[in-house]
Nucleic acid binder design. Structure first.
Length: 206
DNA sequence: CATGGGATTGACT
DNA sequence: GTCAATCCCATGC
């Protein structure tokens, strides 16, 4: 596996969000496969870049292939990959990973044992990987936090899409993407998500 | 300089 | 289901 080149990110952010599924994030000895993402673009009000170029949003408008890390609710660091050509404010939020390596390190950082609780959320995965605000604006190809390419394309139907989580504006856009049936996807599960090994989700009320 | 609002999580009812 | 924790930054005076 090789680091994703800048050209990979210099495309429509929704395409990048979909294609980041299955890629690997490495920080130190900890690594995980991306199983859930969300796209954000300056043209819609849920994106931080919607307000224009400020000190906070500067990385979003910078060159593609770098990290945008910010603090959420005063507690969590959230990791994004900056996309689209320089000058366009857009990024993909990494929402969940399937742990691959350094799982004991992740357990230690998270303070929980259950493997499905290590990286099943945007705040959880940064804590598990040890990603912090100091990684803001670092290069995802050559810096301490690296995004590695996946080997091949997904089968049709492997990816589900749905509305983004936790936003109040532009909530109708189906810009959340996840690997269908993967147990490391965060809550709430996207529409159409199906648990692995089951024919269909239980629908009856009682 | 003061204020208000989050791209969340975990604990509790 | 509800709610508090707690930091950064954009905005307005």
């Amino acid at each position: 596996m090789h680091p994703l080149p800048a050209e990979f990110y210099a495309r429509p952010v929704v395409d990048v969000a979909r294609e980041l599924l299955g890629c690997t994030i490495v920080h130190g000895r900890a690594a995980g496969m991306i199983v859930e993402t969300e796209a954000y673009h300056e043209g819609e009000p849920a994106c931080h870049a919607f307000v224009g170029l400020t000190e906070r949003t500067r990385p979003l408008f910078g060159p593609p292939g770098r990290a945008y890390v910010y603090r959420s609710y005063g507690i969590h660091a959230l990791l994004n990959a900056v996309c689209e050509p320089e000058g366009v404010g857009a990024a993909v939020l990494i929402r969940a990973l399937e742990p691959i390596e350094g799982i004991e390190e992740m357990r230690s950082r998270r303070g929980v044992a259950d493997e499905c609780e290590l990286c099943s959320g945007p705040g959880k995965l940064t804590q598990a990987l040890g990603v912090e605000l100091e990684h803001n604006d670092s290069d995802l190809g050559t810096g301490p936090v690296r995004f590695l390419a996946r080997a091949r394309r997904w089968e049709p139907g492997a990816v589900t899409a749905g509305p983004r989580v936790g936003i109040t504006r532009a909530a109708e856009l189906p810009w959340r993407f996840a690997l269908a049936g993967n147990g490391h996807v965060s809550r709430p599960r996207p529409l159409g998500w199906r648990p692995a090994g089951r024919a269909a989700p239980a629908r009856s009320r009682g």
